[in-house]
Design a binder for these strands. Structure first.
Lengths: 358, 358
DNA sequence: ACGGTCCACTAAACCGGTTTGCTAAACCGC
DNA sequence: GCGGTTTAGCAAACCGGTTTAGTGGACCGT
């Protein structure tokens, strides 16, 4: 991929029009500083010369790139095929487009996220799923770039967008308890890399706490031991359910932390001869678009995914301050239960009986 | 979003180290031009000063942005939520990452694709679903930027990646004909904007021709009149099927040009009380990941989506020339039929009988 | 002692724009 | 006709790097 053919520059236009470079710049950016005739003459010449200001030179001179970055610890290949990320990004894109901003994805470059951050030319960054105490967030903080963290509790006084993960998870568990379920399996999202286990500020930990709070009404207690984790994809869900089954788990209800995984788990359950929801209830998380289109439609916890994206850029543009002037910089969005077709009353006479047999 | 705090520049490092700016530059880019001690001294000072080369300044000086653009006529919000695009982009991202390149999305800015192209700072462009005769492609061609067109026949001698759309479609139709179907509905992808109708070089037209060729064996003929179109999303598919049904169509088989739409159509069919595949067979196109996870799993035409993305960047990097030196610049990738669970023998005694009654 | 090579490094031009004084002419009221 | 204000446009600095041409000194063989 070699260089583009030589294109006309601002100097060419200036020469052709017999004016200074400054005048050409004015003609496009602040035409009111020039007489009307001069402006139109310069513009005409620019058109015939097919002049187009070099965006990079402009960025350097203005020290603005008109671009915001989305920072994720996962690789781009998983981002783009994950419906949750897709919808989140769509939200970001919508708000960015409205503000005339481009978006750039910042994800590990040759395995190094730090390097990727260094190479990114952006005016601000939205981090998603990255704890405020992660080294890369520290790197951004030191660099002085404005940023907003999403899906991870921010440091106090730093802008963040969160949803009520715990509350939503509790609703899900309570729903199943109400249907008579007592044998649960939790399918969780694997932490991005094997850095640490369950960070308490992480999404996975928060949702697990919510599930646990929900089953407490039935006198039950859920811990990491009742959970199997995997990547947040359909394959990941299939695989997680199979592993749990192979390890002897015989739940009547499965609490899944992502819709994609829930769809995969449903598939795996059916492969094993289980009917959904008659034999096993499954409840997802996120309420992505596709959740309405599964068969039966997926019961899940709704969170305003696109809205998160839009709010994140608003917050970024506002410099961390809220629209209603000076209010808190941390925003907690609501979640709610959406009951559709994958949950039903617990099958009778199970739970106590079969749990170890084979 | 104001400017970042002042960061140290190459001049600061040079001053602190008592060397010239050039030396600092060399220390990072061509260390062999300096003595080992000098290099390490400069690097140390750079580290303590938290120096990080400004990527924009570097781009300007090198006249390379290390970025490739993906140009689509659709808005980013539809791109990111469309599984086909997601997988294609994942392919691009994989190959780009390997080459140390970032990717940037170029899509209509405030409604203007031309403006978006002007503002993009990229070294090369991959256009997807945009005819080689479109004005924006002309714009790119004139600008001298290398580019590759995907999903649209390129001009001769211009690099392009295509799949055998027509052949795949034919396979799909033949499969259904072989199962005894005679009453077809085609659900097509709506052209990006209302620019023109069916351009013969477009994906939709090619697939339609393939379907038509496939049913020809049964003495049938398919035209645009047998087709209903909509946006390439699940909702689009649901909507399209409903419209067709409301207009009196009573097909025993539906040929859908996108998996997302096929899933939507399946949903709509069931809402209308139809069983899939007993009452109506449905066949998609693309074989996106989710196609394996529908219930029943979707019969569809496979195309190598990710591979298209990877090949596109390879071709771009090779400057349009193929790896095996000098061969043709146009690549035609294969499609194949994947029979899963949404197609079955045509229901008996239908077709001739019910077609108008109610 | 001398010209020639190498080595390690520097000075300055350059990339292509924006922006900040500044100036010359036009315009103004009186 | 004169000081004061606008207006229209220019020259030059600047953004922060890369890259080219060049320089001074050490080293070398004779």
């Amino acid at each position: 991929m070699e260089q583009a053919a030589r294109r006309s520059t601002i100097a060419d236009v200036a020469r052709a029009a017999g004016v200074s470079k400054a005048a050409v710049s004015f003609a496009f950016n602040t035409p009111e500083r020039l007489s009307a005739e001069t402006v139109s003459r310069i513009r005409e010449i620019a058109t015939t010369l097919e002049y187009r200001p070099d965006p990079v030179a402009r960025m350097l001179a203005q020290r603005r790139t008109w671009t915001i970055g989305i920072l994720t610890p996962q690789g781009l290949d998983v981002i783009f095929t994950n419906p949750y990320f897709g919808e989140f990004t769509a939200g970001v894109a919508t708000a960015a487009e409205a503000a005339g901003l481009a978006i750039q994805f910042i994800s590990p470059l040759h395995g190094s996220l730090t390097r990727a951050v260094d190479r990114a030319s952006v005016d601000g960054i939205i981090t998603v799923g990255l704890g405020a105490d992660h080294p890369e967030v520290g790197q951004i903080r030191r660099s002085g770039l404005p940023f907003v963290v999403v899906d991870s509790t921010g440091l106090p006084d730093e802008p963040a967008i969160e949803v009520d993960d715990e509350g939503g998870a509790r609703l899900a568990a309570e729903h199943l308890v109400g249907l008579g379920h007592r044998d649960f399996l939790v399918i969780g999202i694997e932490p991005p890399s094997a850095t640490s286990g369950l960070e308490p500020a992480g999404v996975t930990a928060r949702r697990l706490r919510g599930y646990d709070a929900g089953v407490a009404a039935a006198g039950l207690h859920l811990t990491e031991d009742d959970m199997v984790v995997g990547p947040a994809s359909m394959e990941g869900g299939t695989d997680a359910f199979r592993r749990a089954w192979a390890a002897g788990a015989r739940p009547t209800a499965v609490l899944v932390m992502s819709d994609a995984m829930a769809i995969g788990a449903m598939h795996a359950a059916r492969d094993l001869g289980l009917r959904v929801p008659e034999d096993v209830s499954i409840i997802g998380y996120d309420d992505v678009d596709v959740a309405q289109f599964t068969d039966p439609p997926l019961t899940t916890v709704h969170q305003p995914i696109r809205q998160k994206g839009e709010e994140a850029v608003r917050l970024l543009l506002a410099g961390g301050r809220h629209r209603d002037e000076g209010s808190l910089e941390q925003q907690l969005l609501e979640t709610r239960l959406v009951v559709r077709g994958t949950t039903a009353r617990a099958p009778r006479g199970r739970g106590e009986v079969v749990d170890d047999g084979r």
